[in-house]
Amino acid sequence: MSFISINNVWKSYGDNQVLERLNLNVEQGEFVSMVGASGCGKSTFLNLLLGREQVSKGSISLDGELLKSEPDAERGIVFQKYSVFPHLTALQNVMIADEFSQAKLVGWTFGRRKKAIKQKALEFIEAVGLTPAINQYPHQLSGGMQQRLAIAQALMKSPKVLLLDEPFGALDPGIRSDMHTLIRDIWQKNKLTIFMVTHDIKEGFELGSRLWVFDKLRDDPHAPQAYGAQVTFDIPLRSHAQKQQAQQLIKQVGTQSS
């Protein structure tokens, strides 16, 4: 049994069939990049994995058990924006993750326990390179710093699965490549399973150990909502050779269609 198995999953909103016939298996430690046209259902797919939305048909299981139907600490997420709490400083934003689990009633920790949490939080903040900014509020941080903060926050819970929805979409190219190094390090060190939506196919190739392309196989121009998107390409990218092969393929497809 795979770590995550997606069995014949369909998802619709009313008449709008968004996803259909998804049958996919993902092993622990894979990094799945997901690309596809805008509005084809990538975020919807992440929301299903997150438990924020429920499947219309089919089932998803995580670690042999049916996926919980609400968000919890097993699955971490970094959204494109609004991922950090505006009323907390960077340090508090990361500490809150453990305060949630250690102070279930009052929500705040004190004394030695607080110190221990602070120590741990500082390590994660260090890992994402935010040590100089620990006492700043999110609105005082740049977009890239906010995203790094959100990643540090998510890592505090050592989630089994990390979901990233266009996490670097709003960043300029220079910062993007720094973030790529960061996320690759974190992925390898923590043996995370990552799902990342991106609009940048190059980014998808560079980071992923596997690339999914979402697209509609069936399309009725008179009823665009009648059919959902599927994963039309599932490209392995584990080795360097595979990556090059895939890139070659994309180039060919690109020249043919243009």
Binding site: R52, P71, Y82, S83, F85, H87, G107, A150, A154, K157
Partner: peptide
């Protein structure tokens, strides 16, 4: 409040009560 924030809090292990007092109340 952005839904993202409430979901984020849940993925950090917060209960409804903790979301109320640590995420919503101060804001």
């Amino acid at each position: 409040l952005p839904a993202e924030q409430l979901i984020k809090a849940q993925t950090l292990g917060a209960s409804s009560w903790l979301v109320a007092i640590r995420v919503v109340l101060p804001q």
